[in-house]
Design a protein around this nucleic acid. Sequence first.
DNA 1: CAACATGCTAAACGCTTGTTCAGTCCACTG
DNA 2: CAGTGGACTGAACAAGCGTTTAGCATGTTG
Lengths: 231, 231
Amino acid sequence: MSSAFSPSEDRTARAVIRDEALRLFAAHGPGAVTMRQVGAAAGVSAALVVHHFGSKEGLREAVDSHVLATFEAMLGELAGEGGAVSLDSEAAGSLGEAFLRHLPPDSPMPAYLRWLLLSGGEAGHRLFGKLFELSRATLDAMVAGGTAAPGRDPAARAVFLLLNDLAVLLLHDHAARVLGFDPLSADGMARWAPEMLSVYTGGLTASPADPGPGPDSGPGSGRSHAEGDPS
Amino acid sequence: MSSAFSPSEDRTARAVIRDEALRLFAAHGPGAVTMRQVGAAAGVSAALVVHHFGSKEGLREAVDSHVLATFEAMLGELAGEGGAVSLDSEAAGSLGEAFLRHLPPDSPMPAYLRWLLLSGGEAGHRLFGKLFELSRATLDAMVAGGTAAPGRDPAARAVFLLLNDLAVLLLHDHAARVLGFDPLSADGMARWAPEMLSVYTGGLTASPADPGPGPDSGPGSGRSHAEGDPS
DNA sequence: CAACATGCTAAACGCTTGTTCAGTCCACTG
DNA sequence: CAGTGGACTGAACAAGCGTTTAGCATGTTG
């Protein structure tokens, strides 16, 4: 079955409620959304929401596990698609770029990440753990490929890269406001990624003209783009 | 002349209420805190909270402007104390380190930053704007001092550095969970800062032993105090 | 056919919320 | 001393919350 995404039109009312709840939760935060609002958005009564999910807490858990499942499936594809590892622009901007590729452009999932990560709940910790594993594996593969060195503390380095990725996700609207473009948008990333990449490859001191004194990324640096995959 | 900090014991009830509200808001989010909880925490009735601040929204605004004033004063000192600029470990870990130096260790201010930045309100935008100015000025000074190069897009580079700083603030508890130490604590930063610094000075490819393959960028890049060797 | 589970709703329940109100205390002022 | 005004409170208010309940269709099963 088509895994997490169900583009069919005759979804069960349960799924409609779950998706509308996700949309509202992502936009205003779970605490600020009422059961009646969820019901109204899904075109059903508030009582039916309770009937299907038991309680508001149950609805939250259902949304959480749905989002978690979607992300874990996506993370699995991410870890697998690059084989050894995607390097350069893919590895560096992995999260933002991955979202753009794997999710519809108006998906509420990235926005819901905020509440998942900042509410201090168990789901957030679990997701962060998964992301850390991915970041750790990516860094290891880059080390093996010669495109990066493990730091004194490889785990700390992996967390550092992960936090930087997540920061763009959490604060991209602030960044867009002062920059004039959104680093998470398709064209905004074209301006953002090179800047980020230049720091990662050569540090802050390297000049733009200088491509970086590093040991020149060996294997297949040319084919960074993953196109030709319509949907 | 300690400006924002008032260590006196006979603070007005209004200030007590404001501070307790800040504490609760930072811990649970403004939306999840009731007027009765604020009153109880301050040792007064809920009605008195309304009497002093008009409404819950008024209380929020009072807390916001108080936090904003504190941060702006702190940012002003920060921009001034380094003169031209603090470099190396200070500039890199500026926000986290600055909080440790300028605020009591159990201050709710850093935690409240989350809600300020993520609620999408005007106060959050204004604070981010101030932080951006500071980051921009710091980067400019580093460029002038030779410790950094402006990127292709200096504004984007400043935002990149700022977001990385803020990420530690927003997600340090997740980081602490997978790392075993909190990057925002005093001793945790001793392990975190060198890792961050090594990426900023030499990029991801530079090895710890290798001080950086950089073009030996002229003026005073050699002197770094703390992270010279094993700690 | 009767019995029953399922999907669903309108109405109501008890509770908490932010806010209001009437009134008490108490330090000042004339 | 009478009077005024600000700090402060307990009780009450309407509104909104999550949840419960009783009941209506509809389709499936014996």
